[in-house]
C-alpha cells in the first residue's frame, strides 16, 4: 500500500530550516510519500541531501527521491510583483514538493509539462502518472 502524506505550508512555516528538514525526513522514513505545499529554498534542499546521506545505511534507509513543481514565471511585471509581495507576506506557498523514500519510489521523472512517479513493488514495477 502506498501512503501519501500532505504537509500544508502552515505546518512548516514557523519551523527552523533544520526542524523542517527533520520533519520531512522523519515522515519519509516511515515509508510515506510527502506532498508538501510550497518548496524548500536551495540551501534547505542541499541540507536535506546532506541529512539524507547521514542517515543512509541506518535501518534500511537508502535515501530519497525528490521533485519540485512550481509555476513558471512567464507572467508580466505586475503579476511578478504581486507574487513577490504575496510570498513576502505569506511565505512561498507556490508549487508542490514531492519526497519519497528510495525504497518505495524508484524514480521521479520531471518533464516540462508532466511528472512521472515510478514506484518499486516487490512483485512488479508499477507506474503512476
Amino acid at each position: 500500500m502506498l501512503t501519501l502524506q500532505f504537509i500544508p505550508y502552515n505546518d512548516i512555516q514557523y519551523l527552523t530550516p533544520e526542524r523542517r528538514i527533520n520533519k520531512l525526513i522523519n515522515v519519509v522514513k516511515e515509508n510515506k510519500i510527502v506532498l508538501m505545499q510550497g518548496r524548500l529554498v536551495p540551501e534547505e534542499e542541499s541540507t536535506l541531501i546532506e541529512r539524507t546521506m547521514e542517515q543512509i545505511n541506518r535501518s534500511n534507509f537508502k535515501g530519497i527521491e525528490i521533485c519540485t513543481i512550481y509555476p513558471e514565471s512567464d507572467s508580466n511585471v505586475v503579476e511578478k510583483l504581486k507574487s513577490k509581495i504575496a510570498n513576502l507576506l505569506l511565505g512561498n506557498r507556490e508549487g508542490l514538493t514531492i519526497i519519497g523514500p528510495a525504497t518505495v519510489v524508484k524514480e521521479i521523472k520531471k518533464h516540462p509539462d508532466k511528472i512521472q512517479l515510478f514506484t518499486t513493488d516487490v512483485k512488479k514495477k508499477s507506474r503512476r502518472e
Partner: peptide, 17 residues
C-alpha cells in the same frame, strides 16, 4: 540523460543563491 532532475536544479539553485 533527462536534465530536469531535482539534483541538477538543486545544484544550480545553490550556486545562484
Amino acid at each position: 540523460e533527462n536534465p530536469y532532475s531535482q539534483v541538477n536544479i538543486t545544484i544550480v539553485g545553490n550556486l545562484v543563491a
